[in-house]
């Protein structure tokens, strides 16, 4: 295995996952105020109403599919009598459907984002980088599925013999990347693009995915909270900063509005 392969299949995934985890922790601690979907529905609703659910439901299906295919070992499905043939048909059909939903949704979202003027102006540079790095793995993954599973050799490509053990070895801190150079190019590109996306995830508005409000269904409807010093009127010192100093302006908290 060459140095480049070690870099790509061992060092890079770890660097990416480190950025993901450390970045999320850092952002959670330092930037609660910035932790939001930053929705643009106020500007444009007609396309979003279709495209956003399509994209999100498709993407959740994609995540579930990746979990099934990558995290669950092949030996387990074999053990419960789930034959490779049946798995392949199921995974390919469900995966293609998920890809279709995601891509159609994403096209709709990108369309409104760059065609509707108010939405385009609400797009930050960070959003643009995020959109590129989000679109790449989705298109590459779709390509990989189409080229190998749907239109490839009969039986498709069994990634559960190569990619899945490699990913589990990464996640269990026993990296074994020997099989990776033999994986079809489309999958390799998809994996690299995917880890790139993980690396920037905490620094974009994608963080909203981490705070899915799962506790909402179990909560009482009305929330009461006692007044806290932190949400009370900020004890701003009176007076103006002297003209010859450059101290940061204190107070002016953003809470509670």
């Amino acid at each position: 295995m060459s140095a480049l392969d070690t870099l790509l299949w061992v060092a890079f995934p770890y660097a990416s996952l480190t950025l993901l985890v450390a970045g999320l922790v850092w952002r959670w601690r330092s930037d609660q105020f910035g932790w939001t979907t930053r929705s643009s529905q106020l500007h444009e609703k007609a396309i979003l109403r279709l495209a956003s659910p399509l994209f999100h439901v498709g993407f959740l299906m994609v995540i579930a599919g990746h979990f099934l295919g990558l995290i669950i070992p092949k030996t387990w499905t074999d053990a419960v009598g789930f034959r490779e043939q049946a798995y392949h048909v199921l995974a390919t059909s469900a995966g293609s459907l998920a890809a279709l939903l995601t891509v159609v949704g994403l096209v709709g979202l990108l369309w409104r984002r760059f065609i509707t003027q108010s939405v385009r102006l609400a797009t930050t540079r960070r959003d643009k980088v995020m959109y590129v790095l989000l679109t790449l793995p989705i298109l590459l993954g779709t390509w990989a599925t189409l080229s190998t599973q749907l239109f490839g050799q009969p039986g498709g490509y069994d990634y559960r013999e190569t990619i899945s053990p490699w990913l589990r070895s990464i996640l269990t801190f026993t990296p074994q990347a020997e099989a990776m150079p033999t994986v079809p190019l489309a999958f390799r590109l998809h994996i690299i693009a995917g880890f790139l996306l993980f690396a920037i995830w905490p620094f974009t508005r994608l963080v909203h995915a981490v705070t899915i409000p799962v506790q909402y269904p179990t909560r009482p409807y009305i929330v009461y909270r006692a007044r806290q010093a932190s949400v009370s009127a900020a004890p701003t010192r009176r007076g103006w900063a002297p003209v010859d100093t450059t101290t940061a302006h204190e107070g002016a908290g953003s809470r509670g509005a």
């Binding site: 609660q32 932790w35 939001t36 979907t37 529905q41 909203h208 949400v231 509670g256």
Partner: peptide, 9 residues
């Protein structure tokens, strides 16, 4: 709470 709002609208 501006820190806990996630913008679900």
């Amino acid at each position: 709470d501006q820190d806990r709002c996630r913008g679900w609208r």
